[in-house]
Amino acid sequence: MSQHQIQNQTEIQTQTSIRVRPAAASDMDGMWTIFDAVIEAGESYPFAPGTSRAACADYWFNPRSTSFVAVDAGQRVLGMYKLVPNQMDLGAHVANASYMVSPAARGAGVGTLIGRHSLDEARRQGYLAMQFNYVISSNQAAVALWKKLGFEIVGTLPKSFLHARLGYVDAYVMYQLLIEPAAWPAPACR
């Protein structure tokens, strides 16, 4: 068995004990722990270190967002994502999403699980495409995952992120059609 096959088998076995479900207010302690660790690292999100718990709650539980958590059998939050329209009104058919995985759960397939779940959920909610506006180029695991799940880099924002260790680095805009345009509903013309 190749290393790749072993890795995929391990990922599948790990994911079978992890469930993705809608986030609830009772998940906030676990979500905050992850959010705080990711933000304090200063490597993948534009939030400043020291961002408050209230700002975290507003980010994940606002009226425009639908948030989900990946939990283990004991209901411990291992990761989370949210879906939101990328733009208002005439751009609302394109989803945007944000993801965070607990540093303790990295490498266990949680990112892949919530990534796939988010694509299915976006389709279920009627989105026709998904766009990530700000994927940090030095976050190689995220870039590789999104490419594996069908996203393409459609733009580069030169030196737009101030990385805690690397200084100014690029960010990518990544995009994926969720449904072939030939199958999109006809737009209502005025």
Rank of each mutant, 00 (worst) to 15 (best):
D89Q: 15
P46M: 09
E43V: 09
L162K: 14
Q131W: 03
G74F: 06
G107V: 10
P49V: 01
T66K: 13
S138P: 03
M174A: 09
F68Q: 04
A122K: 08
V154A: 03
P85N: 06
L177D: 13
V101E: 03
Q125A: 11
K159P: 02
G107W: 05
W60D: 00
F47G: 01
P158H: 07
S98M: 04
D72F: 07
A105P: 05
M174K: 12
L78V: 08
S138N: 05
Y99T: 09
V169M: 06
S102F: 08
K148F: 02
A57Q: 15
L177E: 14
P85A: 04
Y168K: 14
Y127K: 00
V77Q: 06
L128K: 09
H163R: 08
S44Y: 06
V173E: 11
M80T: 09
R64G: 03
F61C: 07
T51P: 00
S52A: 05
L177M: 12
A48D: 13
A108M: 15
G42A: 00
A144Q: 13
S67C: 07
Q176Y: 03
L90Y: 10
V169G: 03
L162T: 11
P46R: 11
F151R: 04
N86T: 11
F61D: 07
H93Q: 09
S160P: 03
G107S: 11
P63Q: 10
P187L: 12
A70V: 06
E43P: 00
E180P: 13
